[in-house]
Design a protein around this nucleic acid. Structure first.
Lengths: 144, 144
DNA sequence: ACCATATCATTAGATGTCGAACGATTCGAC
DNA sequence: GTCGAATCGTTCGACATCTAATGATATGGT
């Protein structure tokens, strides 16, 4: 009786992502952050998003999930939301001083973590890995 | 001002895993299953686990999470739990006929999905990807 | 034999995620 | 201009996951 002879690629991928994601969470938590909060902060600082829908898309989560995090971040004093005068449907999101400070700290965490991930590999290997992952994602993501 | 110049490896990994995991969920749902249910079924059929703790470890989830799924699966008539006569702390888990049937169907889904993932790559490429992912996981997972 | 400790599983409460339904506002066709 | 459709964000209910606390049973040291 013959099941799945080779370890399925999807399983290996999800297990690896789980382990790495977990380590990333731990690293972020040590500086008082979380992964989704870091992703929101990074996107706000590095991309011109004009509303929450674009912000959610850039982070890679749904609008409902973003609302959830923005509520918590606003409660924590990391950002403010106010309705745009030009279009009263959209909420303009802006970082507070506290938000800026947390961003700076978490950026250090993210940089260090990325170096840690790359440390066991040659530049060629990381490039190969990035290329294969990108192709894998595209092959499932894009309608082709 | 210089942030994270290259796309961070962890981000690419998590995004790829999210897309592939999502597609896997859709494929499983089309046959009336879910990813965690499939993982539980596969482990029960292919590994000798003598209690739920081992089952959870083999699947890669915590005991509490496993209890959650086993409750649902038992309610759905996919398996039965009964206390071991030898050690009344442990629950012996056994698939029902319905559980066996679902396993057979989901196995087809898993095989097809794995082929789909591999279809855009040469055997050498999939081997390289598997090797790099394994090394990446080990570098973070193992105490070294 | 007894009691402290370890083991196995469940329960309780939290987080992050999603889809669907819902208000509020804007846009566009007529 | 008005009213139906689209857009923006929130709310609601669901699911998978985790940690910590709890209950039930077994083990071991004295």
């Amino acid at each position: 009786m013959h099941f799945l002879a080779p370890p399925p690629l999807g399983l290996l991928l999800s297990q690896t992502a789980k382990v790495i994601g977990r380590a990333m969470e731990d690293a972020m938590a040590a500086e008082g952050g979380t992964v989704p909060v870091w992703q929101v902060l990074l996107t706000l600082k590095t991309r011109p998003v004009s509303n929450q829908r674009e912000l959610a898309a850039a982070v890679g989560i749904q609008g409902a999930t973003l609302t959830h995090h923005l509520n918590a971040m606003e409660d924590d004093g990391l950002l403010t939301r106010r309705r745009s005068p030009g279009n009263r449907r959209v909420h303009e999101v802006e970082l507070t001083e506290r938000g800026e400070e947390l961003f700076a700290r978490l950026r250090g965490v993210a940089v260090g973590f990325d170096q840690r991930l790359r440390s066991g590999f040659s530049p060629e290997e990381t490039a190969t890995l990035a290329e294969l992952l990108t192709r894998l994602k595209s092959s499932v993501d894009d309608p082709e």
